[in-house]
Design a protein around this nucleic acid. Structure first.
Lengths: 126, 126
DNA sequence: ATAAACGTTGACACCGACGTCAAGGTCAAG
DNA sequence: CTTGACCTTGACGTCGGTGTCAACGTTTAT
């Protein structure tokens, strides 16, 4: 299939697909006229990339997953490098959550000093 | 005082101070030679800005606070517009926290499928 | 033959809060 | 007079994942 069809099936823009290729995430065969030609495996790669981006991964984070799929594994996350990324991302997310919780508390405290009773309940607080 | 001294006392760069002025956050008098001249009140403004930026506010978010201080209020947060920003930021932070918690759960779930027992405890989980 | 719908590469725009040069003016001390 | 520490404005670079436009080639249908 050509880039337009892959884009439609994957739910991404052609711009995104070209960008992924530029970043070395996917590699397309070229037909005689220079058009990119993709297979079903590529759709799987793009789907994996999108899935990871949607949970806050960068393209760089997604690289090992794509490599894992291209290596023939059924899941992009089943390779050691992917697992390492999973764990790193978990700690990063945890750090961000902690930062946000701290900030929320600080902002809520400030708001309380000028407007007691204005603060809504925090997530998980009853 | 001139820009260098204000920068030192406020713990910011001169570049930041000029940027704040460019964005209309602070206004400096000019001496005969064109140098910016600041007073103690300006230090207070900059301190307020920094304090807000450090908890994730944008300069735009900080604007009402600065206006409030310039209007003579002892606290930048004591004006109605500032309170509104406080509340909006709280909901924004809450949204971000919820998003991150969801993401963490998704990533942890994926990791578990390829590496059971690899997932560390979530914040607040014992 | 031509229009419509596809494809190609290249390159600028975006967002926010600055960092970092460039090229110059000002001022106090030695 | 000169050095050096200060100041000025202006403008490009950063970071990521695209959107969007330009200018052009290809293919298919009519």
């Amino acid at each position: 299939m050509r880039i337009g069809e892959l884009a439609r099936r994957a739910g991404v823009s052609t711009r995104a697909l070209r960008y992924y290729e530029q970043q070395g995430m996917i590699v397309a065969r070229r037909t005689a006229n220079g058009y990119r030609e993709y297979g079903e495996a590529d759709l799987k790669l793009v789907t994996e990339i999108r899935s990871l981006l949607s949970v806050g991964f960068t393209l760089e984070d997604a690289r090992p997953f794509v490599a894992c799929l291209r290596a023939g594994h059924e899941s992009g996350g089943s390779c050691p490098e992917s697992v390492a990324v999973y764990q790193r991302k978990l700690t990063e997310i945890d750090d961000e959550i902690r930062t946000l919780l701290t900030r929320r508390a600080e902002v809520a405290a400030q708001l309380t000093t000028v407007c007691p009773g204005c603060v809504l309940r925090k997530i998980g607080e009853s």
